[in-house]
Simulated scan of single mutants.
Amino acid sequence: MAKAARAAQAWRAYRDVSRPGSPGIGVRLRAIPRLLGGVMNGTYPGMGRGKLAMMGLGVLYMLSPVDVIPEFLLLVGVVDDFGVFLWLMGSLLGESGRYVDWERRRVRAVPS
């Protein structure tokens, strides 16, 4: 993914989090474990296991000592990890926000 696309995705995630009525960043971060569980056990239809696997690969890439651009190239080597981090955080914040909205709709749909 190009740097401009990653930056645009991060900006969209920030704009979405700061939108009035949208779940805040704390709510989204606390929802991530529930989101992961919902995807894994199939109760949340909004995200597939394929995207979850891509996010997992992103985490592994950041933690891995093997890089496409090694860190010994100073700043350039860190930029690729930071790009993956931006994509991962943008994806997680966006997906967790959609998950919280889905949970809220589901709770309202349940008759009391």
Rank of each mutant, 00 (worst) to 15 (best):
A109E: 15
M89T: 15
R34E: 06
I69V: 15
W102G: 03
A7F: 09
A5E: 13
Y44P: 03
R34W: 04
L57F: 11
V79G: 01
F72R: 11
D16P: 02
Q9W: 05
L29P: 00
I32M: 11
P33C: 10
G46N: 07
V100A: 13
S96W: 01
R34S: 10
K51S: 09
F72D: 12
S91L: 01
V17N: 06
Y99W: 04
V110R: 15
V17T: 15
R6Q: 12
D81G: 12
V107S: 02
L35D: 02
L60I: 09
G37D: 05
Y14H: 08
R105E: 14
V68G: 11
G83Q: 14
S18A: 11
S64Y: 11
V17C: 13
V100Q: 09
V39P: 03
S96F: 02
R108G: 07
L63G: 11
G58Q: 04
L75N: 14
G24E: 08
V39R: 02
D81W: 06
A5F: 02
V107W: 04
V100Y: 09
L86Q: 14
M62D: 00
P23S: 08
G26C: 02
G42W: 07
P45V: 01
S112F: 10
Q9P: 00
L86E: 12
G38A: 03
Q9D: 12
